[in-house]
Structures are given as C-alpha cells and as structure tokens.
C-alpha cells in the first residue's frame, strides 16, 4: 500500500468499525426509534467532517452521538406530554420470566446523568475523565454517577442475566 500516513481511511471503514459502538451509545441514551435517527445522524455529521478530522475516532463519534442524544432528550422533556421511554421494548435478553424490562428499558429509567455515565463508560468504553468532559462534570462525579447507575440497574434487572 502506498498510502501516506496523513491519508484518510475510506469513511466506510469507520462505519464498519464503529457502527456497533455508536449504536450502544444511541440506544443506551434513547428509545429504539430515536436511537435509529441518532445513529444515522451521527455518521452523517461525522462523514461531513471526516476530511478535516484528526484524532481519536471512537471518542469523537461518541461525542457526536452524545450531543445528538442530549438534543433529543431535551426536546422530549420540553414536550407538553412527555412520551419518552416507557419500558415498552420487548426483552432482547431472552429471559422467559414474563418480565419485559431489558437493559435498554432499565437504562431509560435512570436519571440522565447516571444514564449517560453508565452508557459512555460501560457501554462505550470511555475513561471517566472523558465521560466527565462530555457530560460537563468532574471525574469523581462521573464515577459516582456511573456507580449509582449500575447499582440501580442491578436492582432493576434483578433476576435477569447479570454478571
């Protein structure tokens, strides 16, 4: 290959490598429908800026996805009759115990701060320093939010397939 160090990879490779990561962030923060919108909007925005971008691709994509998600959540909370995120989604964990509360639905029951901390650290793999930067808080606060969020998830998912 005669590609110089500065040459940009074809954007399709970015989609292939990071599509599942961006999905976890979008779906962790939003309901199924909004998450699908946010996923394609994230990659559309990233593709537009791809020629000029330089840095950590995964962190950059999570940042874009986070902002898209926060915009949607704000718009939802401004709505007169909030309809966001009822735990209506059929379980994808396949635990046939009659309960339909899966991870995504459980995440939707967390306060946004905890939800974002859990998603960005545990589902996207960002270090707490970056989670703090992304959510406009301190590293200890982000760590605490994630810890509280995980504890709450554990109780919500009690009896489910948790490690």
């Amino acid at each position: 290959m005669s590609i110089s160090e500065t040459a940009k990879a074809p954007f399709e490779r970015v989609v292939g490598e990071h599509g599942p990561l961006v999905w976890r962030v979008c779906r962790g923060m939003l309901d199924q429908h909004d998450a699908e919108d946010a996923w394609s909007e994230t990659f559309l925005a990233a593709m537009g800026a791809w020629a000029r971008f330089d840095g950590n691709v995964a962190g950059w994509l999570v940042t874009i996805a986070h902002r898209k998600a926060v915009d949607v959540l704000r718009a939802r909370s401004r709505a007169a009759f909030p309809t966001a995120e009822p735990p209506e989604v059929v379980s994808t964990l396949g635990v046939p115990d009659g309960r339909d509360l899966d991870l995504w639905a459980a995440l939707a029951l967390l306060p946004t701060r905890q939800r974002a901390a859990v998603v960005h650290h545990h589902l996207a793999g960002l270090p707490f320093a970056e989670v703090a930067q992304l959510t406009g808080t301190t590293e200890p606060a982000a760590r605490k939010a994630a810890s509280d969020g995980v504890q709450r998830l554990r109780s919500l998912l009690a009896g489910k397939d948790i490690a």
């Binding site: 995964a58 793999g125 960002l126």
Partner: peptide, 29 residues
C-alpha cells in the same frame, strides 16, 4: 472499543446494522 459493562449488553444484530446503514445511505445525498 470493547464494553466493560458489569451486565449483559445485547449485540447490535447484523440486520439492524444493515437497516441503519441503509438509512445513512438515503440521508447522504
């Protein structure tokens, strides 16, 4: 990046990723 979740995280299934990709294609005009 891998997940470090202390709970099971469902994988994005290939059919879903294909649908998302198709939406991206439609929007990229």
């Amino acid at each position: 990046m891998t997940t470090t979740a202390p709970f099971a995280v469902p994988d994005a299934d290939p059919a879903l990723l294909a649908r998302l990709h198709a939406r991206l294609e439609d929007a990229a005009t």
